[in-house]
Amino acid sequence: MKYLDLWADVEAISGPSGRFYYRRAVITWSRPKIWNPEDPEFSVPSSWAGHGGLYAMLRNHWRQAEGRRIAYIGKAISFTNRLNNKHNHFDIVERRGDTEVSCGRVRFERVKAHAGYYLELEDVVKFAVWHHSENVQGFSSLPGFRQSQPRVMLPWVIINEGYRFGGAMPRRIVYPAIGVEF
């Protein structure tokens, strides 16, 4: 086992076989676009269509003290299939003010991509940006300890690239150890 000094990077922790303990995911966020309440589907950016990952819904209305803020983090196996209002999933779109959506494509490193990892990433990211979140599911416990999750979550290092959300989205999240860099 490789031990680290207090100031060393946790990404370097590995076992005797050389396998790293922390899995790594890089999320590239698109520039947010307004979801018009009249449209039944969100217009997913062309380079994100057909892919999955995480999405962030931002709210902006006249009563907010500051500008737009992250109000919801979700996961999607397919952005095109998930971001529609056919079944009124997103009442947030119908409210007064603008709702914008940013899609985050995920690139997995040190681990083979798996659709179940989107839930783990969603839980960690929404805990990092919980200030104005309207997410309710998953906040009853720490990430990785939901009753609906059949297995314990392994450690993650999450790097956020692309759109910066006005500094509200950490550039790097380390979980567990809940270390964030802004």
Rank of each mutant, 00 (worst) to 15 (best):
Leu121Arg: 03
Glu120Tyr: 13
Gly67Gln: 08
Pro45Asn: 06
Phe20Pro: 06
Phe127Pro: 00
Tyr118Thr: 07
Lys75Ile: 01
Ile73Trp: 04
Cys103Lys: 02
Ile34Ala: 11
Pro150Phe: 06
Pro143His: 05
Glu120Ala: 13
Lys33Thr: 13
Trp130Asp: 07
Phe79Met: 03
Gly53Asp: 08
Val106Leu: 05
Glu122Gln: 14
His87Trp: 04
Arg146Ile: 02
Ile92Leu: 14
Arg146Met: 10
Glu109Leu: 15
Gly50Ala: 07
Arg31Asp: 11
Val136Leu: 10
Lys75Tyr: 02
Gly50Ser: 06
Asn88Arg: 11
Ser148Gln: 09
Val125His: 05
Phe90Tyr: 15
Phe79Pro: 00
Asn135Leu: 07
His131Gly: 06
Arg95Ser: 09
Glu66Val: 11
Asn81Tyr: 04
Phe90Thr: 00
Ala25His: 10
Arg82Ser: 03
His131Asp: 13
Ile27Tyr: 07
Asn60Asp: 14
Gln64Ser: 12
Arg107Lys: 15
Ala56Asn: 04
Lys112Met: 09
His89Trp: 02
Ala49Val: 06
Ser148Met: 05
Pro143Ser: 05
Trp62Lys: 12
Phe42Tyr: 15
Ser30Lys: 04
Gly97Phe: 00
Ser102Phe: 00
Leu83Val: 03
Val44Ile: 11
Glu94Val: 04
Glu134Leu: 15
Ser30Gly: 08
Phe20Lys: 15
Val136His: 08
Ser47Ala: 10
Ala128Trp: 00
Val106Arg: 06
Val136Gln: 09
Lys126Gln: 11
Arg63Asp: 10
Ala115Cys: 03
Ile73Thr: 03
Leu83Gly: 01
Arg63Gly: 07
His114Cys: 09
Gly116Cys: 05
Ile27Leu: 12
Leu58Val: 09
His114Tyr: 09
Ala56Leu: 11
Tyr72Gly: 04
Leu83Cys: 01
Val101Pro: 02
His51Gln: 13
Glu122Ile: 02
His114Val: 05
Arg105Asn: 11
Gly53Lys: 06
Asn36Arg: 10
Asp39Cys: 10
Val93Asn: 00
Val93Lys: 05
Gly144Thr: 06
Leu119Ser: 15
